[in-house]
Design a protein around this nucleic acid. Sequence first.
DNA 1: CCTGCTACCTGATGGC
DNA 2: TGCCATCAGGTAGCAG
Length: 274
Amino acid sequence: MPEAPEVEAVARTLRPLVSGRTIRRVQVRHSVAIRPQSPSILKKNVAHASITTVERRGKYLLLTLDRGCIAMHFKFDGQVLWFDDPKDALARHVHVDVAFETDKGTLGFVDRRHLGRVQWLAKPEDSDGIRALGLDCFSGEFTPDRLFEICQTRPRPLKLLLMDQTHIAGIGNMYANESLWLAQIDPRRQSDRLTPREIRRLHKAVVSVLARALECCLDPPPDFRNPKWWFADLAGMLRVYGREEQPCARCKAPILWIEQGGRSTYFCAHCQAS
DNA sequence: CCTGCTACCTGATGGC
DNA sequence: TGCCATCAGGTAGCAG
C-alpha cells in the first residue's frame, strides 16, 4: 500500500479499530521486518503500551503510543491485517512478520517480500526517513506557491522531484505519472523551467489525482480481516501508469515508456507538453 | 551539502 | 511444462 492515499486510507480505517487498545504482547516472527532494531528492543518498549492514535506521515503509518510510537513503512507489498483471535495471526497460511496482540484483537504487519519495516521510536523524528520528509502532499500548506518554490530551488526532471520524499512527501511512481499526465506536462521537463500557469496546472492535477485515489481507497474501505484484501480496482482509475503502447485516453497517441531515476515513467509524448 | 546508483527481497509474468 | 530473465506502487546507504 505504497503511496500517501493508500496509507491515509489505512490510517483512517485502522484508527477506530486500535485507538485506546493496550498492547499485551508482541511476536516477531520474521525479525528482518524490524531490522535494524532487535526483537527485544521492540518488545521492551511496546509491551503494555497503549495506542493513542493512528496517523500518516508521507508514506509512513504511525501508531502513537502513550510512550513513543510504532512506525511502519510498507515499501512495495507490506500491509496490515487484523485478527479477532490471536491464534489466527500465527496460522501458517498468513505471513505475519510482526504481531501486536491487544486486549481486543491482534494487529499483524505482513510483508512476504520483507522490504517493509516496523520500528519503535521514542519520537517520530528519531527515524531518519521521517525526519527528512518534506511538505506532505495532503497538507493545506501544499499550495501552488510552495510547489513553485520547490521547483525553483530543486531544479531537476519534474517526475523525480514529485517523487522526492524530502521535498514533497507521499507521492510515488504511480501518482507522479498520473499527475503529470493530467497536467499535460512532460515528466522530463526541468522543474525550474515551468511557467506559472503550468505550475498551477500541475498543483491542481496532483491534488485532484490524490483526492480521487483516496476516494477509491476508502470505497470500499480496507478490510483488514481478509488476508487477501487489497485496494479494489486502483488500476481502474489509472489513465497512463502501466499503459505502454496503449492509446492515450485523451489524444489516442501511443503511451511511451522511459526510465527515470531507475523507475518506470509512462507518458504521452503527443499531449504532455515538452 | 547534494545527486545518482544499487542493494534489499520475493513472487508474478512472459519468452523461449 | 519448465526454466530463466525481468519487473514491481520504495527507501537507505554509500560513493563521488
